[in-house]
Nucleic acid binder design. Structure first.
Length: 919
RNA sequence: GGGUGCUUAGCUCAGCGGUAGAGCGCUGCCCUUACAAGGCAGAUGUCGGGAGUUCGACCCUCUCAGCACCCACCA
């Protein structure tokens, strides 16, 4: 016997272990078709957040669905070494001990990072397991940690080196001195994508540059960079300045003089129409400088303090200190014309939030244009499809305007660039040092100390995880993978780059579909962030957490008291009683239900509670079924007769429809639709109607009817469990184990049971019509009942005048009696003369036999009469419009006529009843 | 400056060229032996504004307004 209510904790862990140890998650060779999903590898040292949980729920649902359909499913998972993020974490740990990475040295530091990885690397994969992720953990796992691949393991590194070398040999990777985004705190270059520019309040200054007999005034938001100016520029057509082009002005504070040049880049409308040109510290100016053959002057060291190219006075000053000094000195010389508040866009490093400094440095780049072209073509031809489709535009526009990708990072944690230099500065790119040496001869070599952008290795995952550069069978089978499920924020970082790399190296797409999932927000639609305290830990939703524990963990490590205060207030307001344990299934169902094609997903705890209740409903429905079928004849023995009523045939018919809806939902990635379909079928149809009517049928004197009922109860439930399994795996497994044998099903696990498929032949429209009628009668009667204000427990008789063509009148009436809680139902061609309340439902008139106030009943009927008259008016005016009748499709017109006739017939009956009421 | 998405019941969101939907919340009644994490009944919307196309628009077109996000070189 099942417990009275559903306790997720009691079943989840048990089943997951059993599934995993039985090897159910593994792919099966030599089966077709293949179904493969690549997990966006989470940071190895990270923890699971709501976005992960959401994505993984959808992926797991897809995987489980396809596995049950018999596909050779392979959910390829792994973790990412996350260069910058991980290095920062370990450096902070060192900092707490008063050390820096330089105290340890490169080798020891990397050891230290690896230790940290060993220690914390299992966290996120453990959390994924709690969610029920049926991932192929052992696949591509060379470290034996049952966590899939790791982007820094030997095999993945080999692919990285191979790709680097081949791209270099094709001239698609090059090294050059370029202006790059520099994070002075981390001391590394970052790519364009890793820079966020937001509007901030700042200032703008106007500086006068004296010339011979004239002067030019320019505006700048970064006055300190004037020390690196190489020119002033004006627009070539600007009449004000035309005469000055080619002359020189003095560069204040430096003793240098710089030319006045003309360039299209200058907007004559903006400011004074003259611009200072600082190619060493500004991307636009860099381009202008190149056009005019002006050598950039870099005035800063890599830590953003001024260097020897600045006048002695400023050397060694930090850039913003230097700004103050420069402004003071300009002011003293009368060259500072103005200072005004100004809204400007400040580029900040995504990782540290530090203001990025454009810095002229030697870096490695990938030339993107030739790689981008096939990636664009794949989307244009429809080979690569986005869901929702509009994300194609985003993808396309980025690729059309793509810039070369700076891939070198001045960090230690990552794949070291496979390039060696001799003393003359010659570059030897090779697969290993021996190969480099073979090229270089016996010159002493030193390896490039830089590492590669983490996204460089991520871009290779779709094929490197399958064994590339070896030619493996897995590459044949699982590339392209079926769908990539990921957030829009990494379309550029990751999705587009995977497409480019995969097409270039394997001539295959990495995946056919890209499903872009919504961003998870809190219930109020606010972005989740630690500092707001509105983050939710998926595990807290599964396991539950007390208010105290939640407040404590949300504020741990926060130094600033006002933050702590704010967060505590938030938590008090939103989670005064903590969070109850909803279980993984409820959480998953919530995610699925909220996964429409909209861009954001507001996660609502109350919604989660509702789906927890759904799980409980499923649990209790099963409990009911088991109570009525275990140890009883469920009609499995074909030699004994089985009778199926229209009610049994109706629920089976509905089952076919919901199966089709779910299949469509999966095909369209409309998880909300498929979850809704399951929810409505289980709760609204099976529980609210079928189970209630089954109670009636189980009382039937005819054993064949009982057998038919039990068989239907069990079979439909067993099918519904399989249908729901991809979304709610734990509870369905637990219940299926008990239900399946009664339904004559064998198998060790629901995971590998066949997924239900709609059989149109079992759709029974006659049964559906009968059932629709029974529902209408029941609803109408219940409505009368509610309005008649019965005493608790009071049951009344119902008089029904029904049309003779109704199918199984007896069952219909028995059902009505039970569902509407009537004492009895009497059928008669005419109703008794009584002021009792009457409902008109199509051909039928239903009288709930009770003395009521005639005035109240008259009012009720009059209201109904008025409603019908309104509907009739609307329908008539439609039909009296000649152009509607002529131009609307025939079936629409016919439908409208039927509608009108129905209303008119009902109205006549209602009015007749109204007449009968005593005044 | 370019692009994308959104605006429907108190809240969060589906929706379709042909009678406005769900969940939660709300109101009333009910501990009916699967489930009070439940049952039954009920209320609630000029579908952002305007114009157009159409026999018919919440849906298509245009336009305006508001919200959100992405990309971009204006000092």
């Amino acid at each position: 016997m099942l417990d009275k209510s559903f306790d997720p904790a009691a079943i989840e862990e048990r089943w997951y272990q059993r599934w995993e140890s039985s090897g159910y998650f593994r792919h099966r060779d030599n089966e077709t078709p293949a179904y493969c999903i690549q997990l966006p590898p989470p940071n190895v040292t990270g923890t699971l957040h709501m976005g992960h949980a959401f994505q993984q729920t959808l992926m797991d649902a897809l995987i489980r669905y396809h596995r049950m359909r018999g596909d050779n499913t392979n959910w390829v998972v792994g973790t990412d070494h996350a260069g910058i993020a991980t290095q920062i974490v370990v450096e902070r740990q060192l900092e707490e001990q008063g050390k820096s990475r330089h105290d340890l040295g490169r080798e020891k530091f990397i050891d230290r990072v690896r230790q940290w990885k060993q220690q914390s690397g299992a966290t996120i994969t453990r959390q994924m397991r709690r969610l029920g992720a049926s991932a192929n953990w052992e696949y591509a796992d060379t470290e034996g940690q049952r966590a899939g691949y790791f982007t820094m393991d030997a095999h993945m590194s080999r692919a990285v080196v191979e790709v680097f070398v081949r791209l270099y040999e094709k001239g698609l990777i090059y090294r050059g001195k370029r202006l790059v985004n520099w994070d002075p705190v981390l001391g590394t270059a970052v790519s364009d994508l890793e820079v966020d520019t937001d509007e901030e309040d700042g200032r703008i200054w106007e500086i006068r540059y004296p010339g011979d007999g004239f002067s030019l005034t320019v505006a700048t938001t970064r006055p300190e960079t004037m020390l690196g100016d190489v020119a002033l520029a004006v627009h070539p057509d600007d009449a004000r300045y035309r005469a000055l082009v080619g002359k020189s002005v003095q560069l204040p504070l430096t003793g240098r003089s710089v030319p006045v040049i003309a360039d299209q880049y200058v907007d004559p409308q903006f400011g004074t129409g003259a611009v200072k040109i600082t190619p060493g510290h500004d991307f636009n100016d860099y381009q202008v400088g190149r056009r005019h053959g002006l050598e950039p002057i870099s005035i800063m060291r890599l830590d953003a303090h001024l260097n020897e190219n600045a006048p002695a006075k400023y050397r060694g000053l930090e850039r913003f200190e230097a700004r103050k000094q420069v402004l003071a000195d300009l002011r003293a010389q009368g060259l500072l014309i103005s200072e005004k508040p100004y809204r400007l866009r400040v580029p900040r490093s995504g990782r540290t939030g530090e203001i990025v400094e454009p810095m002229l440095t030697d870096q490695w780049f990938v030339a993107m244009e030739t790689l981008a072209r096939p990636a664009l073509a794949a989307a244009a031809s429809g080979e690569l499809e986005f869901f929702p489709e509009h994300w194609t535009t985003t993808y396309r526009q980025w690729l059309e305007n793509i810039q070369d990708w700076c891939i070198s990072r001045q960090l230690w944690w990552g794949h070291q660039v496979p390039a060696w230099y001799d003393d003359a500065g010659n570059i030897y790119v090779a697969r290993d040092e021996a190969a480099a040496r073979a090229k270089a001869g016996d010159k002493p070599l030193r390896r490039d100390p830089d590492v590669l952008d983490t996204w460089f290795s991520s871009a290779l995952v779709p094929f490197s995880s399958l064994g590339w550069p070896e030619k493996t069978r897995d590459l044949d089978v699982f590339l392209p993978s079926s769908v990539l499920v990921t957030g829009f924020d990494i379309i550029f970082f990751w999705v587009a780059r995977m497409v480019m790399m995969s097409l270039h190296f394997t001539k295959k797409l990495p995946f056919r579909h890209v499903y872009i999932n919504a961003i998870v927000r809190d219930a109020d639609g606010e972005k989740m962030s630690k500092s707001k305290g509105n983050t939710l830990d998926p595990l807290d939703l599964i396991d539950g957490i007390t208010f105290e524990a939640l407040a404590k963990k949300s504020t741990v490590g926060l130094l600033r008291a006002e933050h702590r205060q704010k967060i505590e207030t938030y938590i008090k307001a939103h989670f005064p009683n903590g969070i109850p344990a909803f279980g993984a299934d409820a959480l998953r169902f919530t995610f699925a239900s909220l996964a429409s094609f909209s861009r954001t997903l507001n996660f609502d705890l109350e919604r989660c509670e509702g789906y927890r209740n759904f799980c409980n409903k499923l649990w209790n429905a099963t409990r009911f079924v088991l109570m009525n079928t275990e140890g009883k004849d469920c009609g499995m023995d074909d030699s004994r007769p089985v009778k199926l009523s229209f009610i049994d045939r109706w629920i089976v018919s509905q089952l076919q429809r919901v199966e089709a809806e779910v299949a469509q939902g999966f095909a369209e990635y409309r998880f909300d639709n498929l979850a809704g379909a399951i929810y409505r079928f289980v709760w609204d149809e099976y529980c609210d109607w079928y189970v209630e009517l089954a109670k009636v049928q189980l009382q039937d004197a005819d054993e064949a009817v009982q057998r038919g009922t039990r068989r239907t109860l069990v079979r439909v439930l067993e099918t519904a469990l399989r249908l729901a399994h991809p979304v709610v795996p734990f509870i369905t497994e637990e219940l299926w184990q008990k239900v399946a044998p009664l339904a004559g099903k064998r198998g060790d696990t629901i995971m590998l049971a066949r997924y239900p498929q709609s059989e149109p032949a079992k759709i029974d429209e006659a049964a559906e019509r009968d059932m629709a009628l029974l529902k209408e009668w029941t609803n109408a009667t219940r409505n009368l009942r509610a309005q008649a204000k019965l005493a608790p427990g009071e049951r009344l008789p119902l008089y029904a005048s029904v049309a003779p063509q109704v199918g199984d009148v007896q069952l219909m009436i028995a059902g009505l009696r039970a569902l509407a809680r009537l004492s009895e139902v009497k059928t008669a061609p005419t109703l008794p003369e009584s002021p009792s309340p009457v409902a008109v439902v199509g051909e039928a008139r239903l009288m709930l036999y009770k003395e009521v106030d005639p005035a109240a009943e008259r009012e009720r009927l009059a209201k109904e009469s008025a409603r019908l008259a309104g509907e009739i008016g609307k329908a008539r005016s439609q039909l009296s419009n000649p152009s509607f009748v002529e131009r609307a499709p025939a079936n629409v017109v016919a439908q409208m006529r039927e509608r009108l006739a129905g209303f008119e017939a009902t109205l006549a009956k209602v009015n007749a009843q109204l007449e009968k009421l005593p005044r």
